[in-house]
Nucleic acid binder design. Structure first.
Lengths: 252, 252
DNA sequence: AATTAAAATTCCGTTTGATGGAATCCTTAA
DNA sequence: TTAAGGATTCCATCAAACGGAATTTTAATT
């Protein structure tokens, strides 16, 4: 087996720094990455020399470095992200729930970006994570947007695994479920992917990007009363492209 | 000296993959990174296991992996980039010259993003690269946007180094030069940073981001006749925020 | 189907870089 | 001044990275 453990540690360190707003001290980094102090220190200095971390002048802390920009240059989804960001922000502001942008990658949902609720109880799916399509609202929204024959082919090739007690396992229910999604114009899922979390999602086919979708992820207890229908409505408006264009805002 | 060489190699590999459109074969990666074949191979597999590179199904090639998104999530400048991108694209289309977005980081210009001309003769500054402020149009545009006392403090602390035969070295000329930039509303520079390259730049203070600037980088021979004034005018319009808003476009 | 050349992958003995506990050195606060 | 809590350096140990060479796989050609 290949090892390259230093590389893995370096990336953990980098991801920790990126996830941390502003900068972190060596002690924090040591604690969060669970690396021994000298190891963390050596790693940070090495990354600094490479330009991937920098040290805000004056402080003795570490933060992400400018060279990370080089890794961002090739982001294939930058366009969609930029496009979706204002709409996601709107949803986020209105409901204060976690908003996810995902795409269909093979038969999996790939999470691209999120805006998290400020509630203490929340779900955080990190960009780069993946989930099966069949137990997520995002996945269902995107698969249902595919041409019927593709959709059917995917269903046939699916062998659902139980993720939570509620995960649907029968192909027949999956098939009818996707039909309903197509008819209703939105997808939903209640605790099938993560216990206690419900999701509502719409794909962005109207924007020209059927393989992308946006979802609201809500702890099931908070999704009661009229809220659900309000969310569905907001998502459908968003997907239709009728949301007020929010290009250049007044900036000063 | 700390070593951590494997980490450096891993990043070279990753940067190569990111810079390459689509995917690359092991042979290409080996050649471009100048690593021995087994080393490159081991590295790619390790990065794959970590999720930073992926292998397009069917092919036997490598490309950037989904986990890179995690490193992009914390991009502090994403907002400005997204904002500037349409304006940059416009400039790029009109003049077919390289357009740069940069920010002031201490006393240096940090390049964030670029759109390259299609001409064979071009200058490419990679995101993450840095240059001193005093010999670049970007730097001069941004420094001149600072409050006068800050500006003067920076000038005093500057000890210009000769980058090309044309680099200005006297503080007095630098001071009057920045004054002119402030008066004219744009900065320029001819072969002082890279021999044979001229730049025109404006800061984005009107957009609410005075520490960011956009420049056109043109091989000096191509900057003749009326072109220069047309470019200056286009940049000033852009900076004023009067450029036609280009928010949500029709997306089919 | 057989042949072969090119490319990818694995092998494995060598060596180097990574490791982390302990000691030392700064900083900051009292 | 002193103390306390980080940050940094040391260094003996050892595992991990190294890369030339051998092997296997793939794809093209006859």
């Amino acid at each position: 087996m290949s090892a390259v453990t230093a590389v893995g540690k370096a990336f953990s360190m980098l991801e920790f720094l990126v996830a941390t707003e502003r900068s972190a001290t060596l002690a924090e980094a040591t604690q969060m990455t669970r690396l021994p102090k000298p190891t963390a220190h050596r790693l940070l200095r090495a990354l600094q020399k490479l330009g991937y971390v920098s040290r805000p002048p004056g402080t003795r802390s570490y933060s992400m470095g400018p060279r990370l920009a080089r890794l961002q240059a090739g982001d294939a989804h930058a366009h969609v992200k930029a496009l979706a960001r204002p709409a996601m922000a709107k949803l986020h502001q209105r409901f204060n729930e976690t908003v996810n942008l995902g795409m269909l990658s093979g038969r999996e949902v790939l999470y691209l970006e999120y805006q998290a609720t400020s509630h203490a109880l929340r779900i955080v799916l990190r960009p780069g994570d993946k989930d099966p399509y069949y137990c997520t609202a995002l996945g269902r929204a995107m698969v249902s947007a595919l041409p019927l024959e593709d959709c059917e082919r995917i269903i046939e090739a699916t062998h659902p695994k139980r993720q939570t007690p509620k995960t649907l396992l029968a192909k027949s229910s999956l098939r009818s479920l996707l039909g309903a999604v197509r008819k209703n114009g939105f997808a939903e899922e209640h605790g099938e992917s993560v216990d206690g979390i419900s999701c509502l999602a719409v794909h962005l086919g109207q924007w020209g990007y059927p393989q992308y979708a946006i979802s609201l992820a809500v702890p099931t207890p908070r999704l009661k009363g009229k809220i659900r229908m309000q969310m569905v409505k907001a998502l459908k408006i968003l997907a239709s492209g009728d949301a007020a264009p929010s290009g250049f805002r007044k900036l000063s």
